[in-house]
């Protein structure tokens, strides 16, 4: 276990890095408007805060709202949406560009889609470094190679020159992580950052993220489907359902969640050491859509 839930709650109260109050995101569709996020409030300190919840519940949309990277069809409103004392909703494009990467960074759920298909992955990592640091291209290349090594890529020199379609799923994911590491942000939104990694590499990557939180005071939002991982890796857990938060618990108390949806999530996990014929699926209830 990392830090106790109480300590991390205190951290969140002391100096929130991110604060969201009554965050709402709606998408303008051909016929009418779709409310994807329907009033979400939380704050992030120098801690590992997990967001779990079913597919489509709005986890990535929350992450993108903080980055202000929702598509033009999105209408984002909030009583408050801040990074430290910067109001993210009224910040200028220029200000947002300054914040992204250097201060708030996001590892996207679909790494290959987020990479430029016509540049080598190494060039893209080096470029991420040069956006915020005035260094020679040789130095940027050296830094990029070091980062590829840090994320456990075998033969970094070979991989530096590969294009996104030539790397495996887990390599793509680690390239995104290397790009994030090289810019050393204060807040990291990691959207399923390790879903394509084998468990041994995953542990090594998580250890790097863990160090960034403990040693450099990084605040991390960790979006994940992996409840066992979240339970052991994060400090607090937000459980989302249909665009709302249904429950927030200390990670250590994840087994004691109350909401029937949260309980259903735990039950549907396959077990490493116990075979079941069928996995229980969640029987949804319309009352869960109402405010909690």
């Amino acid at each position: 276990m990392s830090s106790t839930p109480r300590a991390s709650d205190a951290a969140a109260v002391q100096a929130p890095l991110i604060e969201a109050r009554d965050l709402r995101v709606a998408f303008q569709m051909q016929r009418g408007v779709f409310q994807a996020i329907r009033g979400v409030s939380f704050s992030l300190g120098r801690e590992k805060l997990a967001i779990v919840g079913e597919s489509g519940s709005g986890k990535s949309t929350v992450g993108r709202a903080i980055m202000r990277l929702n598509p033009p069809s999105a209408i984002v409103t909030a009583e408050r949406l801040t990074f430290k004392d910067v109001d993210l909703l009224s910040a200028s494009k220029k200000e947002l560009r300054r914040l992204r990467g250097r201060h708030i960074s996001m590892i996207m759920q679909d790494p290959k889609y987020s990479l430029n298909p016509v540049a080598t992955v190494g060039e893209q990592i080096a470029e991420a470094y040069r956006t915020h640091h005035k260094v020679s291209s040789r130095e940027a290349r050296e830094r990029a190679l070091t980062m590829l090594e840090a994320v456990q890529i075998r033969s970094p020199k070979r991989v530096y020159d590969l294009y996104p379609h030539q790397v495996s799923g887990g390599m793509g994911q680690r390239i995104m992580i290397a790009m994030m590491l090289i810019s050393d942000p204060e807040v990291l939104i990691a959207d399923e950052p390790t879903s394509a990694l084998d468990v041994t590499v995953r542990l090594q990557i998580l250890a790097i993220l863990d160090d960034m939180v403990k040693e450099r005071g990084l605040g991390m939002i960790f979006i994940s489907h992996d409840l066992n991982l979240v339970r052991s890796f994060c400090d607090r857990v937000i459980i989302m359902y249909a665009g709302r938060i249904v429950e927030t618990v200390a990670a250590a108390d994840l087994d004691n969640v109350q909401h029937p949806y949260s309980r259903g999530l735990l039950n549907s996990l396959p077990r490493l050491d116990q075979k079941r014929d069928r996995l229980p699926v969640i029987q949804r209830d319309d009352s869960w859509l109402e405010a909690v």
């Binding site: 919840g53 597919s55 759920q109 879903s195 489907h225 409840l227 259903g264 549907s268 996995l279």
Partner: peptide
């Protein structure tokens, strides 16, 4: 890429 309930 699926949450655990949809995975099930």
């Amino acid at each position: 890429a699926l949450d655990v309930s949809v995975q099930a």
